[in-house]
Every structure is written in C-alpha cells, then in structure tokens.
C-alpha cells in the first residue's frame, strides 16, 4: 500500500448527472489515489456506468448533462476540472491519462479491424509512434496481459477470440499509453470465475507496475474483498456508504451494503452436499431488506434412466491453428 497522505489523482465533487429531466447521479463525491483501488459497488441501474462515462466525458454522446459538480484530475498541467474541459481537450486526456475498460467484452471491439490495428491506434495517436513501432508495442502489451501467440493475435479479428481473450485485449488497449487512472466497469461480470480470477490478477500486477489509480466497478463483494482498498456503495444514483474495505466489511451500515455482503457465498457452505442447494437471498425492499426463497436441496436429476443427451468423442477444429477441443461428456437430465 502506498503512502496514505499522498493526494488524490482524481476527485469527484458534488457530481450530478441528468438525462433530460431525470437525475440519475445525485451529488456524488469520492476520490482515488495513485496506486490504489477504489471499488464502486451498487445494484444494476444505480449509476455506476454513467459515473465512469462521466469521468471520461463520454456520457454526453448518449445525451447526459451535468447540472453541478467538478471532476478534478491532477495531470501534467496541474489540477484541472474535467467537466469544464472542451471535448477537444478531453481527447488528449482520454486513452492517454485516463483509460477505461468496458462491461461487455463481446461488443467492445470493432468487428472489422484486427486486434493489432485496434491496439496500435491509440499508440499512434497519443505517442506518435509509427505504424510498425506501434504494432511492436502492441505485441508487448498482448504479452503483458498474458495472451498466448501474441504475434499471431495481432492479425486476428475479434470474432476469432473468446470473451476472456477479448477482455484481455481490451485491457491491453486501455493500458497502451500507461494511463494514470484506469476505470474498469465490471470487467469480469461477463466472464466465468476462472477467467475472472486471471483477469483480476493481471490487473493487480499491472496496477503495481504502472502505479495506476484504479476505479473498479462491480457488484460482487467477493471481488471487492480481493482487490479494493476503499469502497463506495451507490444506491439509486447516490453514495450511501464509503470506507476502507476492511471497515466496511466488518461493519456495514446501509441495508444495501448488508444485502450485498449477504449475497457472497460462504466458503465451505456446500461441503458434503451431494446435490446443488439453494440459499435464500437478501433483497432490498423499500429502505430495508427482506429474505426471498428458502433453503432447499435441488435433487432433480434421475440417474436410472438412459441419458437424454450424450456426447462422445466430439472433436471441433477451427482453421485458426491451436484452437482444439476434445470433449467426452455425458449429461444426465430428467
């Protein structure tokens, strides 16, 4: 952990965001320090993506306006308010000083350009690298996010990559110009747990290496516990709770925070269970919480009958060299 007394690199002050007349962010305040990770958690629709797109000043292109607030960024020119910058000025900050990883890896890459083109684009733009130097650098970035066959990867198109690979490409793209602030908007929500763990490790390592401030958006408290230093909890466009991660976990105040923490599965709670088991879930009900569902074991599979679907020795090959899959699987269903 870096020096606590170091001043924040990005501060959001009294930020409000409106779409037409509906206010989706109300008077939001938080800040991040270089080298540290701030997690923003909140349920779907609470305004996490709008907040991150507002920092990038991208929310305007979808019709947002900012009736109040400041977003202070300490860059090379000292402290500037991003909300009062022109779009022209923002273009030299976006992708260079502040970069973003988006929620949906499957649709974040442009389907008609190669991976190499898409990564080298910001390098040519901000670092003024030549085409071939930018491609070289792109290859290094792909290695950095631990994609195999980085050289081959440069000439591939997004549709030839899996979701996890695409998200790693997105990370490489976001980190291309070594940004001071990285905003990761639910970078792992769409991915399975093993890939999720890999991506989190990669992000964590790169953060240390580059001393980046990271704003990590999620609604998975398990992920928060793993990576965050501080947490901001959002609820319907407002900040309802904030604190260092340990304090928040030890002593959650807001009912929504409690609900989120209750949703994290407890390690070992399934031990010795032969069948999948349901647990009641805590949901928000007005200003308080409520339990929904009951604890029950789901023993629905029927092992005496013949399988409904069985797959044996399935081989799937793709032209693109190493993708090779050999599955032997029998699935029992009722």
């Amino acid at each position: 952990m870096t020096d606590i007394s170091s001043s924040p690199i990005l501060t959001v002050e009294n930020l409000s965001v409106e779409f037409g007349h509906s206010r989706v962010i109300d008077n939001l305040n938080f800040s991040v320090i270089a080298g540290r990770t701030l997690a923003i958690v909140g349920e779907s629709g609470s305004g996490k993506s709008v907040t991150s797109q507002s920092i990038m000043r991208l929310a305007e292109s979808t019709g947002a306006s900012y009736p109040s607030g400041r977003i202070l960024f300490s860059g090379e020119q000292g402290e500037i308010d991003l909300l009062s910058q022109s779009q022209e000025a923002m273009r030299s900050i976006r992708g260079k000083d502040i970069a973003m990883i988006f929620q949906e890896p499957m649709t974040s890459l442009n389907p008609v350009f190669t991976i190499g083109d898409q990564i080298s684009e910001s390098l040519s733009l901000h670092k003024k690298l030549t085409k071939s130097a930018a491609l070289d650098e792109s290859m290094k970035l792909l290695k950095m996010v631990r994609l195999p066959d980085a050289e081959d990867m440069l000439n591939r198109y997004p549709h030839q990559l899996s979701g996890g690979m695409r998200q790693r490409v997105m990370i490489a793209m976001a980190l291309a110009c070594r940004p001071k602030v990285l905003i990761a908007d639910e970078p792992t929500t769409a991915l399975d747990v093993t890939i999720q763990a890999q991506i989190l490790t990669i992000l964590n390592d790169l953060q240390k290496e580059l001393n980046m401030a990271v704003i990590f958006i999620t609604h998975d408290m398990g992920v928060v516990a793993e990576i965050a230093d501080d947490v901001v909890v959002m609820w319907k466009g407002k900040k309802v709770e904030q604190g260092p991660v340990k304090e928040l976990f030890a002593n959650p105040q807001h009912p929504y925070t409690k609900a989120l923490l209750a949703a994290v599965p407890k390690l070992g709670s399934m031990a010795g269970e032969p069948f999948p088991k349901r647990f009641p879930i805590t949901v928000m009900d007005g200003e308080g919480t409520r339990l929904v569902g009951e604890e029950k074991t789901q023993a629905t599979a029927c092992y005496d009958k013949s399988p409904l679907l069985s797959v044996r020795d399935l081989v799937t090959r793709f032209d693109s060299k190493k993708a090779f899959l050999d599955v032997s699987l029998i699935e029992y269903m009722r």
Partner: peptide, 15 residues
C-alpha cells in the same frame, strides 16, 4: 449505438 463506438471515443480518437 454499438459499444465499440464508445470504446473508440474512449481512446481519444477524433470524431
């Protein structure tokens, strides 16, 4: 509407 358009803007590319 596509996500990759916002991604392109997020890189700082000109309009």
């Amino acid at each position: 509407q596509a996500q990759y358009i916002m991604v392109a803007r997020a890189k700082g590319l000109s309009e």
